[in-house]
């Protein structure tokens, strides 16, 4: 008699490969034949994962069309199935997959839109956290820059993109074909911030030095290291903007 683990592994293999031979032998004769009964489960599994990708990548789906998206998503599910029981977590690698997806070779900006879709998905579902107010930041002045660490809001993602994915994303989700047609794809790189504050998910631009500074902050570097990554006279203005926009939750001394 097969063990529970052997049974579960045979069944899982049949869900992933369409090869039901091993699992089929374990299944009692029933109403539907074994292959067809397994296909009911396979369909729920695959369509559930594809639906999760649709929810996380709405702009990519609109840009590529439903049929194309489903085909790409099915291919992705086959090689990179979910590992988390929370499907909001599923699909972090989809942008990388699309960047290498042969049918999209002539549309390289799609992968950048996918990175933005994913950052928005993360921002939608990240933990709640109270933003640091400008007045509360005053206490950080007493800490030496090489000992000061700023804590970014858990929803914050900093993206360096080859294409203006934020403008594409806005036009696509607003179904504004005119704006989409008028977009210039060149002129990169583009530096985009995504975060959530009391007003909801925000998508904004930042300068190259601001991008370097915030990337270092998000990587857990000290204030001193982050500033050295992007020495710029604009830093005080950037900090004030970040505080007003709720991109930090606190600071600590190390």
């Amino acid at each position: 008699m097969p063990t529970l683990l052997e049974t579960e592994r045979a069944f899982a293999a049949a869900l992933r490969s369409a090869d039901c031979a091993a699992a089929g032998e374990l299944i009692a004769p029933g109403l539907a034949c074994a292959d067809e009964a397994i296909a009911i489960y396979r369909n729920t599994f695959v369509s559930g994962a594809v639906k999760a990708l649709k929810l996380s990548y709405p702009a990519v789906e609109r840009l590529t069309g439903v049929e194309f998206f489903e085909s790409a998503a099915n291919a992705f599910v086959a090689i990179s199935p979910p590992s988390s029981g929370c499907l909001d977590d599923y699909g972090a690698e989809f942008a990388r997959f699309l960047a290498a997806y042969e049918p999209l070779r002539d549309l390289p900006y799609i992968a950048d839109v996918a990175r933005l879709d994913w950052a928005v998905n993360l921002a939608l579902h990240s933990e709640d956290a109270k933003a640091l107010a400008a007045g509360e930041f005053a206490g950080a002045a007493a800490i030496a820059p090489e000992r000061l660490v700023l804590i970014p809001h858990p929803s914050l993602t900093v993206l360096g993109l080859d294409y203006p994915a934020d403008a594409i994303w806005r036009a696509v989700l607003a179904q504004d074909d005119e704006a989409l047609g008028a977009l210039a794809l060149r002129g990169g790189p583009f530096f985009v911030l995504v975060w959530r504050n009391a007003d909801g998910v925000q998508v904004g631009r930042v300068s190259q030095s601001g991008f370097a500074f915030l990337s270092a902050v998000c990587a857990g570097r000290t204030f001193g290291e982050s500033f050295d990554a992007a020495p710029s006279p604009d830093l005080p203005a950037l900090l004030a903007e970040c505080l007003a926009a709720g991109r930090f939750t606190g600071f600590r001394e190390i």
């Binding site: 899982a12 729920t44 599994f45 590992s83 988390s84």
Partner: peptide, 8 residues
């Protein structure tokens, strides 16, 4: 099963 979530 083996770290994969089969969403059903």
């Amino acid at each position: 099963v083996d770290g994969i979530y089969y969403a059903d």
